[in-house]
């Protein structure tokens, strides 16, 4: 009797596990499916190539080129801004810092930074802008997004540098190279594909984030031109268009969501395949 029970329990639990896995994968399929099914019919060439014309938010013609360009500019600049500090921090942790409790504390602090909600980065960016006398602008958005991407970049780069074999560094030191020379000529070369992955992942996180740019970048129907003017972004285009009562505009929100999802997926798949392709040339 006992024996039957334990095998029955095993079966039930395994069934529940498979069902849970199906639920998790199924929700991904449901989300992507919904966005595709609702977004694709509403998507057209004009949406991708035009800025909003007069009456756009009442259903008249135009597109979201302002938001697409705005997002790309915001993310490119924010990623560039956070790349070098993040790289410096990670190289310091791996090559310069001595292993002690301070290092553990720094790692803990970076982990905490990673989980700070994006709305808090937005609020902090806003206080920085007040300090500098800035209004909602491209520059403000870049600062907030750079802050948001910084911990993502550090964490991914940290994992990349952990994969660099210890012997490689020791060989370099044994040849008389300094830590800086080892960092630049050996570690960076070895870690380059991984660093690219970190950049793409940070871009993906940055381009999809709405809460941090909400009050730092503002929104506009024009194309971005200068650093001190507001800039549109894709996540906010989705949000604002969905918030209007006009059905055609809501459909454009679905199309915008599809565009955003495709960009984010392309970045994440790109990161994955680049890692695989480029890592053939590094030493394992």
């Amino acid at each position: 009797m006992m024996k039957i029970n334990k095998h029955l329990e095993e079966r039930i639990m395994k069934g529940l596990m498979v069902a849970s896995l199906a639920l998790v994968v199924g929700s991904l399929v449901a989300i992507l499916g919904t966005v595709l099914a609702k977004g694709l019919p509403a998507l057209n060439w004009a949406m991708l190539t035009q800025t909003p014309k007069g009456g756009y938010y009442l259903g008249k013609e135009g597109g979201i080129l302002n938001a697409i360009t705005g997002s790309l500019v915001l993310v490119a600049a924010a990623t560039a801004l956070s790349f070098f500090p993040a790289l410096a921090v990670v190289l310091y942790l791996h090559l310069f810092a001595k292993h002690n409790r301070l290092l553990d504390l720094t790692r803990l602090s970076l982990d905490v930074l990673w989980s700070v909600p994006s709305i808090v980065y937005g609020a902090f960016g806003f206080t920085l802008m007040l300090m500098l006398g800035l209004r909602a602008s491209l520059l403000g958005g870049i600062i907030a997004l750079a802050l948001l991407e910084f911990p993502v970049m550090i964490r991914t780069m940290d994992e990349v540098l952990l994969m660099v074999p210890h012997e490689l560094k020791e060989v370099s030191y044994a040849m008389g190279a300094t830590r800086l020379e080892t960092a630049v000529r050996v570690v960076l070369r070895q870690a380059a594909p991984g660093l690219l992955t970190a950049v793409l992942l940070a871009c993906g996180r940055g381009i999809g984030d709405a809460a941090s740019v909400l009050f730092t970048a503002g929104y506009t129907d024009r194309m971005p031109t200068t650093l001190l003017r507001p800039v549109a972004s894709l996540p906010l285009a989705v949000f604002f268009q969905l918030g209007t009562p006009v059905p055609q505009v809501q459909e454009r929100a679905y199309a915008s969501a599809l565009v955003l999802t495709v960009i984010v997926l392309a970045l994440s798949l790109g990161a994955r395949s680049l890692t695989r392709r480029l890592s053939r040339h590094i030493i394992h």
Binding site: L28, I31, G204, I207
Partner: peptide, 14 residues
Amino acid sequence: DVLAGIPSVVYGVW
């Protein structure tokens, strides 16, 4: 990983 990368507005649309 893809689920983790989906932007929160897209979750909102869904």
